[in-house]
Design a protein around this nucleic acid. Structure first.
Lengths: 142, 142
DNA sequence: AGCAATTAAATTGTATCAAATTAAATTTCT
DNA sequence: AGAAATTTAATTTGATACAATTTAATTGCT
């Protein structure tokens, strides 16, 4: 028998399933705000720094421009942010939060707490999981 | 400041990014076999048990029929499996591996090892991560 | 200065995903 | 038995993802 090929022996599998499950836990809280998960994580960055290039967003969110561009355009059309070519370097598109985008922060304030409650992980376990995930992200760079 | 809204404080985020990253590590090994990751995990189940209902596949893979049906049809059209209505209960579709599907197992044999090498996690860490992920999957059921 | 290499976004094509709906079969209840 | 409820798949719809390509701008090299 091929132990290595057993579904339950593959680390990738629970990782993949778990990510979809946890992202899904956000849906009931995001839906009333008319936000998707991807839009939400874009907001998380912009609530921190208010302005970012598309490149920076891609890097921080581990997403590529092919994914983010349409999401950003949608958010722009909904009035949550603006997209402008940089004057110094016209390749760069700078994304900036609008007042409406900033206002959304209040409505989303309690989401992390609510989702956290769904996970039922102890503090130590959450910290450990967090650490291991970032370790994998770091080790698999490039 | 809103600590909870910081991107780096959200467990969901590295989980989501990490899952996509690790799935991406399979691509270079799956592409020569002309397989996608989803097709690969369907194979993982079928290499174990040769036959499964769509329902069983959905449950084991944490995917729903909306995702699996087109994948299974594609794999059927490529000759890797068959789909048949059960005689006893015609709601049930039974998926069965063909010879070609079984033969694929040989070609995929070394994939777990190759991908595992990319992750660079120690045995203890891998075990811990694995355990925590399954714990989250269990705690977030229903 | 001028060309090559690089970089940033956007575009295109393929493959997922999940939620909601539909349709058919089966089970349960009376 | 027959209606109602449940179950299983399939379908439809909307939003992602990523790879590969394209376009335009900038940088590096000579």
């Amino acid at each position: 028998m091929d132990e290595a090929l057993l579904l339950d022996n593959q680390l990738c599998f629970p990782l993949y399933a778990c990510a979809r499950r946890v992202v899904g836990k956000y849906t009931p809280f995001l839906k009333p705000l008319n936000l998707t998960y991807t839009q939400y994580i874009v907001f998380l960055v912009l609530w921190e720094q208010k302005t970012a290039s598309v490149r920076e967003l891609c890097r921080r969110l581990y997403l590529d421009s092919g994914t983010l561009t349409p999401v950003l355009k949608k958010m722009e059309s909904e009035g949550y942010l603006t997209r402008e070519r940089s004057a110094e370097d016209e390749r760069v598109v700078t994304v900036s939060l609008t007042e409406a985008g900033l206002a959304m922060k209040e409505k989303a304030r309690d989401i992390p707490m609510k989702v956290g409650a769904c996970l039922k992980l102890g503090e130590e376990e959450a910290k450990m999981l967090y650490m291991l995930l970032y370790q994998v992200l770091k080790e698999t760079e490039d």
